[in-house]
Amino acid sequence: MKPFAYVRPERTEEAIDRFAAQPGARFLAGGTNLVDLMKLGVAGPPLLIDINGLPLDAVEETAAGGLHIGATARNSDVAAHPLVRVRYPALSQALLAGASPQLRNAATTGGNLLQRTRCPYFQDASKPCNKRAPGSGCPAREGVHRDLAVLGHSAHCVATHPSDMAVALAALDAEVRLRGPAGERTVPVAEFHRLPGDRPDRDTVIEDGELITGVTLPAPPSGARGAYRKARDRASYAFALASVAAVLTVEDGRIGHAALAFGGLAHKPWRAHAAEEVLRGAPATAETYRRAADAELAAAEPLRDNGFKVPLARNLAVSVLHDLASRTDTTG
């Protein structure tokens, strides 16, 4: 690990000023990914700005009936929060599907969004990787890519974003709150992460010097049910091969609100707009769910060894939608 200086500011403005004054500095929250990447030689910031002393860890209801989750709120605390469990079960389940209890006790909301891909070539500093060393190439395309992307990848990068939490937030229409030298702005979670294109080194639309201060969720649609389901290589403590977050309302046998997002398939949480188009207003039947999933996954371009993800994601989506609809039909 490269030597670095360390500061622990108590005010958000001070943290942002510190960052601006030191090129290459990084904010540190839970550190569960950043410290690991520093050990691996993938990250080597000259300065760590510890943001755990900033007043950014609250989870509280908003005036609009939604929920604000501070950037340094721990994954375990958010997952166990009564309002999250009752109103946003997909978020609680997604958090609990991620990592281990020890990691969730340290990992934060902001850090979860900013975690890097677990593509083995990105994490191995001795290998080429366009995300880590732009222009060096992508060995994953022809190499080990069973866990990697089937949607939205490019010739330059086939990495997946590993977060479970972000998939649920995308389906819940959450927004990321950012603060930087130029002030504050919000970005929908579904637009916060980028597709790789020819700039796979940029995971998100965050600007240099901006700090995530929190995530805001709107009030859930009336009568909505949500869920998160994840398929992985072992029963627990593994990244998603594919996952689904869904939020649904059903009335008189027809679907009203429908939000669907896939994880483990792309460089970003994949909000399934084409599937949602099929779902809205359609009969709540298995046939509808299959058509919806197929409409979204028609765009899939599997690599040599990850074609299994397409039927896996389809079956996950169909089963989650079926389970949600059978629990939400207000006539039932």
Binding site: D36, Q102, L103
Partner: peptide, 23 residues
């Protein structure tokens, strides 16, 4: 030493954490 095995688990202010990933 990468937060994957749990052998380093300790309680920090009463909560279990991987001490290998905490500075």
């Amino acid at each position: 030493d990468h937060g994957q095995c749990g052998a380093c688990t300790v309680l920090l202010d009463g909560r279990r954490v991987n001490s290998c990933l905490l500075l």
